[in-house]
Structures are given as C-alpha cells and as structure tokens.
C-alpha cells in the first residue's frame, strides 16, 4: 500500500479505483449470476461461512443472556449482596428460559420436518451484511442437497411460516432471500375471501398485496385476515411455494375509488431479526401436509 505520494498520484489512484468500480458494476450487470464476480462472491461466502458460524455459536448464549437481563424488573432493595444474588438468579432464569425457548424451537422444527418429507433443517449463521440487504445465510449448502430456488420455512406443524427462497448456494452455505426483500414477489391468497393477489417485499415496511379485485370483502372488527401461499399451474409451470404457508397478517387496506384494484399491507409472520433455525424444502410438496 502506498503511503507517501503527491496529490497528482493520489488523484490518479482515485480515478483508477473509481473506473475499476464502474467497470465492476457494468460487468456484474451484464454477467449476472454466471459471471466471474458471482464466482468470486461465492468463494468469499465460502471463506466467511465457517467464521460466521463460529461467531454466531459463540455469541448467541451471551446475546440471549443480555436479552434476558434487559427484561429484569428494577430491584427495589438497596442491599448490594442481595441485589447481586437476585441478579445472578434472574440471569440464570433468563438463560434457562432461552434454553427452553431453543428446545421449543427445535422441537417445532422437527415436527415441521416430519410433515415436509424431503426437507433439510439449517441454522442461521448471518443476518445479512448491510441495512439494504434482506438475506440470511444458513449453514447448509450444495453438499447437503440445497439448490437455488428452494423455499425456506419456519414455525411449527400447524402453522408453517414462509421465510424466503434460496438465492445462492456455496458448497457449505446458502443465502436465503427473505420475503421482505424488495425484489421478492409471489402469489398470495387472502384467508377469508380466497382472493389471490401479488405479494411483494417492501424492505423494512410491511409487505404489499396488489391486484386485489375492487369490492373484495374484508373481515370487520378485530377479526384477523391472513395471507397464505397458493399453488398454481400455468402453461406447464407450477408455483415455487407449496400452498398453505403463512406469509403474514393484513395490517391495512387501501381502497380507492379511482384505482383498478385494491391494495393491502401485510405484516410478515416471521420475526426475521430473531430467526435462528429454518427448514429448506428440497422437494416441495404440491399440497399442504
């Protein structure tokens, strides 16, 4: 790395690096998933995956412990010894709660795995890299039979939840595009009216369902309206997702007199920030189990 040089050399260096960046942007746009940059990306992910798995495994109990402590009530007594003992006990209780929570999550996942024959359970080792990246990385890859385009779910047997779709795979890890990603879209069915619309991700905001026919009836009062995945077949092609996976709950209905269709907002069913393990459906069933 050059540390001492004149302003002229520095300007030349910056022009060179900017030109290289622009060339990379152009090349990546043209080549897409099959280009040399995509291969370099997969190599970088293969290098990072074991490190991420290590850090996640090492820090998860600590993170759970602090989450537990954050919920402790304020201690009224002033006695320092008692305070310390109580904190210690409650810290242990919080750690126990988080262990119980983990056991429950894994048993839910096992039940779901039994329901979906031909599925692979995986741990989440990374939750995206930036604020504009709506992907997670899991610790299973092509060596385990995971392929691009496979649906990813979580939840329990009675209520499977749609997490996203496998977007890229290395030998030991895979990236999952979450349903909140702005490039994600799928057909979704409203639970009451059975109307089908196009669900699309909106980043940190709620998902949106478009193309709902005007005059569609929504439940009144506090009755919830849900959106599920739906199976379809058109011109020999079938949908990517098995039917009956919960996408989310309708949070707002936009009705307009001068629009051609109605639109609703849907808050996703999955809490993506605390997702620890998922199930990849390697042979997606055509019907709900």
């Amino acid at each position: 790395m050059v540390t001492r040089s004149g302003p002229r050399n520095t300007r030349l260096l910056v022009v060179g690096l900017v030109a290289a960046s622009l060339a990379i942007i152009t090349l990546d746009f043209r080549e897409g998933d099959s280009g040399p940059l995509a291969s370099m990306g997969r190599a970088a992910q293969t290098f990072m995956a074991p490190l991420q798995e290590g850090v996640t495994t090492a820090t998860r109990p600590v993170g759970d412990f602090f989450t537990g402590l954050a919920h402790l009530p304020t201690l009224a007594r002033e006695n320092q010894d008692l305070k310390r003992q109580l904190q210690d006990a409650q810290g242990r209780a919080a750690a126990y709660d988080s262990t119980q929570d983990l056991v429950r999550k894994y048993s839910d996942l096992l039940g779901l795995q039994a329901a979906y024959q031909g599925s692979i359970a995986a741990d989440v080792i990374s939750n995206g890299y930036t604020n504009f990246d709506y992907t997670i990385t899991i610790n299973k890859g092509s060596d385990d039979g995971i392929k691009q385009g496979q649906p990813v779910v979580s939840g329990a047997v009675g209520s499977p939840l749609l997490v996203g779709i496998v977007s890229s795979v290395t030998a030991i890890s895979a990236d999952v595009q979450l349903i909140i990603d702005r490039d994600w879209a799928a057909a979704g069915q409203l639970s009451t009216s059975k109307v089908i619309g196009l669900v699309s991700g909106q980043g940190d905001q709620d998902l949106r369902v478009d193309d709902i026919p005007l005059g569609t009836k929504f439940p009144t009062g506090d009755l919830p309206e849900y959106v599920f995945t739906v199976s379809y077949e058109a011109a020999g092609h079938h949908g990517l997702y098995p039917p009956g996976l919960l996408i989310g709950q309708v949070s707002k209905v936009y009705e307009s007199d001068n629009a051609l269709s109605d639109q609703v907002s849907v808050s996703p069913a999955v809490d993506f920030a605390s997702l620890e393990s998922v199930l990849v459906l390697t042979s997606a069933p055509r019907s709900s189990p």
């Binding site: 520095t10 960046s21 152009t26 990546d28 990306g41 504009f132």
Partner: peptide
C-alpha cells in the same frame, strides 16, 4: 491515498458478499 485504497478494498469485499449488483459500495 490510503483512505481511497482501503475504501475500495472494503467496499469490494462487502460487495462480493451481497446479493446485489457488485461495485456500488466499492465506488
């Protein structure tokens, strides 16, 4: 000098790991 160099390498490393068009963070 070093700021631009480190910025390019840091940006490119992040770009390679993102499922987005590569090069924007490097730039």
């Amino acid at each position: 000098n070093e700021g631009a160099m480190v910025g390019f390498i840091a940006g490119l490393s992040e770009d390679l790991l993102l499922n987005q068009p590569k090069g924007i963070t490097a730039l």
